[in-house]
C-alpha cells in the first residue's frame, strides 16, 4: 500500500523533473500558441518591450511564472493569481468571448502532452499525467474567476464614471438650490441635462 503510494509520488516527482527540464521548450510553445490566438498573429509578440508592447511583455514574462507555480503545485498562490490577472486584464477588454479569454490555460495541456509523447505510452505515467492535467483544469477555474473579476471591475468603473458625472451635476444643482432656494433652475435650458455628461 505504502509502497504503491511511494511509487506514485516518485513518478509524479519524476514527471515534474522532466517538465522542469523541458520548461524552456514548453513555455516557448505555449507562448506561441497563445500568440497565435491574437488576431494580429504571433508577430505581435516579437517586440517584447515592457512599455512599447505591454501585452507581449506581460504575456511572455507572466506565463513563465505561471508555469513555475503550476509545476510546484502552487496554482492558488498569490503570485499565480497576480500572473493570471496580468494576463487576463487585457484579454478581458479585447474582442473575445469569455471562453476565448481564458482558454489559453488549456493550451498548456496540449503542449505538455505533446512534449511527453514518448513517455505517455507508459500506462502508469499516463495516470500521473492525468493528475497534472487536473491541476491545469483548476488553473483554468482560477482564470475564470480572475476574468469575472476583471469584467466586474470594468462595470464598476463604468458605474463610477456615470456616478462622477452625476455628482458633478448634483454638486452644482445643490449649490443652485442653496443659492436660489426652491426655485427650479434651468441650468442648460432646452437640453436634457441627463444627456450632458462631460
Amino acid at each position: 500500500m505504502l509502497y504503491v503510494a511511494w511509487q506514485g509520488i516518485q513518478r509524479i516527482v519524476m514527471l515534474e523533473t522532466i517538465l522542469a527540464q523541458k520548461k524552456k521548450a514548453i513555455v516557448g510553445k505555449w507562448l506561441e500558441l497563445i500568440a497565435d490566438s491574437y488576431p494580429a498573429g504571433s508577430e505581435f509578440f516579437v517586440d517584447k518591450d515592457q512599455f512599447t508592447n505591454p501585452v507581449g511583455y506581460i504575456l511572455s514574462s507572466e506565463i513563465e511564472i505561471l508555469y513555475d507555480e503550476f509545476l510546484h503545485d502552487q496554482i492558488d498562490s498569490e503570485r499565480a493569481i497576480i500572473s493570471l490577472e496580468e494576463i487576463i486584464r487585457s484579454r478581458a477588454v479585447q474582442d473575445r468571448t469569455p471562453g476565448e479569454s481564458v482558454n489559453f490555460v488549456f493550451l498548456l495541456k496540449d503542449v505538455i502532452r505533446n512534449e511527453l509523447k514518448s513517455q505517455a505510452k507508459n500506462k502508469e505515467f499516463a495516470a500521473e499525467l492525468a493528475k497534472l492535467e487536473g491541476r491545469i483544469d483548476n488553473l483554468a477555474c482560477q482564470a475564470f474567476n480572475v476574468y469575472t473579476g476583471c469584467r466586474e471591475r470594468i462595470n464598476q468603473i463604468r458605474i463610477n464614471e456615470i456616478k462622477r458625472d452625476r455628482d458633478n451635476a448634483n454638486r452644482l444643482l445643490e449649490r443652485f438650490a442653496r443659492k436660489y432656494g426652491d426655485q427650479t433652475v434651468e441650468v442648460a435650458g432646452g437640453y436634457d441635462r441627463s444627456e450632458v455628461t462631460e
Partner: peptide, 11 residues
C-alpha cells in the same frame, strides 16, 4: 506597433 489601439486590441 505604435498605435495604442493596436497595442491594446491586437486587431
Amino acid at each position: 506597433d505604435k498605435c495604442h489601439f493596436y497595442l491594446g486590441s491586437g486587431d
